[in-house]
């Protein structure tokens, strides 16, 4: 199988994942799209080094996370939530935001974006991988952190998001 074919297969199966990971890191559309493009470039460049020691998806997550962190450090990440740059499609908000369920969903996703923005890079990475349903072992493979450390950190993040959501609902946050 040649490089181009391998690349097309790898991207074809993991395109959505890469896009979502970039979306967890960047709220700005241009930044996110740049990171997405850059991730594809890194995958193209490094595909020959994939030896099959881990799942291709885990390997791709690793490249995506490293590329996003790399992109963050080279650009001034906007810290504030800028309404105009939020991509409703990526926030998974239905276009016909008419009924109550859609409104709740929209609120939920905006809350998640705000929550992510206030997390440290390591925690943001962990949340993005957790939301992608990666096991602790896979998350450890991606980040290089110990599984014990990961469990503790995820637990803390879970506590934090629960508390902040409750505060938001009670109007105290």
């Amino acid at each position: 199988m040649n490089r181009e074919h391998l690349f097309r297969n790898a991207i074809g199966d993991n395109n959505q994942r890469i896009f979502r990971i970039c979306n967890y890191f960047f709220i700005d559309r241009d930044d996110r799209n740049d990171a997405y493009q850059e991730t594809l470039i890194r995958i193209w460049e490094n595909l020959h080094s994939f030896k099959g020691n881990s799942l291709l998806s885990t390997w791709i997550y690793r490249v995506a996370v490293n590329t996003c962190l790399s992109h963050i450090r080279s650009r001034n990440q906007r810290n504030n939530l800028i309404e105009s740059t939020i991509d409703p499609e990526i926030l998974l908000i239905p276009e016909s935001a008419g009924n109550e369920n859609d409104f709740i969903e929209e609120n939920k996703m905006i809350f998640l974006q705000q929550f992510l923005l206030n997390l440290s890079m390591a925690d943001r990475t962990l949340v993005s991988l957790y939301l992608e349903n990666l096991s602790t072992k896979e998350m450890a493979e991606v980040t290089g952190m110990s599984e014990t450390n990961l469990r503790v950190r995820i637990h803390r993040i879970k506590e934090k998001i629960k508390k902040e959501w409750e505060e938001k609902q009670n109007g105290t946050g």
């Binding site: 181009e4 690349f7 991207i11 395109n15 959505q16 896009f19 979502r20 559309r29 799209n33 997405y36 493009q37 594809l40 470039i41 193209w44 499609e89 990526i90 998974l92 939920k108 996703m109 998640l112 949340v127 957790y130 939301l131 349903n133 995820i154 993040i157 879970k158 998001i161 629960k162 959501w165 409750e166």
Partner: peptide, 29 residues
């Protein structure tokens, strides 16, 4: 609300990345 409640739960797979005008999906060239 738990962290797990924010998981895309299959819904994200409906994002049509290929047809997004702002994203170049086939960047080979």
């Amino acid at each position: 609300m738990e962290l797990d409640d924010f998981k895309p739960a299959g819904k994200a797979d409906t994002i049509d990345v290929k047809n997004r005008k702002d994203v170049k999906v086939d960047p080979l060239q």
